[in-house]
Amino acid sequence: MTSYPKKIKRPFVVSVEGNIGSGKSSFLKHFQSQPGVKTYSEPVADWCDVGGHNLLALLYKNPEKWSFAFQSTVQLTRLNIILQPTDASVKMIERSLQNNRFCFLEIGKKMGALSPPEYVVLTKWYEWLEEKADIGLDLIVYLKTSPEVAHQRMKNRQRAEESEVPLSYITLVHDCYESWLVGDGQTRPHCPAPVLILDANRSLEEMFKVYEENLDKILGLHL
């Protein structure tokens, strides 16, 4: 008799997406105490110390020189997170491999920070991962903010690496998110999962109420 390996049941995977300063970290903190939920923040500390090199700071100072190294590192760390085993029934991650591919690689290409060969290498790596590994998402929660609100929040938190990030860059990130997750209202060709769009221009207290109102959807109990 031929034996087949048992299919491993993976958790319901939720990626919280949004601009810099949209409230992704607060979203994860709000849900981390929920039974059966495991949260994974963006590994910013890892990007700031890659063998002693602060790639995030280098990226902002000279994107043309450092985008390829930074995006390669981001892709590796996001892959590590999505493939980490967990007994939790819901796995919440801050941004995704799909975000890296269809948002930030496109930004790098548009800005000229990634050369055509560098862009092709990174997209080929993503295509290989998509084919060979289980990197799928079950829900995307898009915390939608205006670029102006996101930029002001970014300035208020005073992270050293972000001190010189202009509003024009935040606007570019916003536009890429809109293209990827909202589209023209009819088609979103590169959107890998259902999208729950939440207006995140509101205060933190108001957002906590919105999260509770959408609790079943966010935890995969009702889509």
Rank of each mutant, 00 (worst) to 15 (best):
C103S: 09
A45T: 10
K65R: 14
S72W: 06
E64M: 04
L167D: 07
K29H: 15
R153I: 03
Y126M: 13
E42W: 08
G18T: 11
D46T: 09
A88R: 06
L137C: 04
Q152G: 05
R202E: 12
L56Q: 04
A160L: 03
V165P: 09
N100L: 13
D87Y: 01
S25Q: 06
Y211V: 09
V44S: 08
L83W: 01
F102G: 05
A113L: 02
M92D: 08
A88G: 05
I170Q: 14
V13Q: 10
R101I: 06
Q32F: 04
P11W: 09
L76E: 08
K7Q: 10
P5Y: 06
K155D: 00
L76H: 07
V182S: 06
V50F: 09
V173T: 01
T2Q: 02
E178R: 14
C48V: 02
P5H: 13
R78N: 12
A88M: 05
V74R: 01
Y142V: 06
M111V: 02
R188C: 15
E162F: 03
W180N: 11
K38E: 15
P11S: 11
L137S: 08
S168T: 14
W47M: 07
L219F: 11
D184Q: 01
E148R: 06
W66H: 13
H151C: 13
E127I: 11
G220N: 09
Y211G: 14
R101Y: 07
N99P: 01
Y211C: 13
E94R: 00
L122Y: 06
W128S: 08
D184K: 00
F70A: 07
Y169W: 11
N54C: 09
L204H: 14
N80R: 14
D184M: 06
D87E: 13
H151N: 14
D46F: 04
E178Y: 12
L114A: 02
L79H: 06
D199S: 08
C191M: 15
D46K: 13
D184S: 07
C176H: 15
F68W: 12
A113W: 14
L196H: 13
N54P: 10
L28D: 10
L219H: 03
H30K: 02
N62Y: 07
T39A: 03
E94W: 00
E17G: 11
W66K: 12
G52A: 02
V182A: 05
A133F: 15
S96L: 03
L55I: 05
I81C: 01
L55E: 02
V149M: 06
K6G: 02
P116C: 10
P192W: 00
F208T: 02
C176G: 14
H174E: 04
Y60E: 08
F31Q: 08
S146M: 05
V182P: 10
W47E: 08
V173Q: 00
E17M: 05
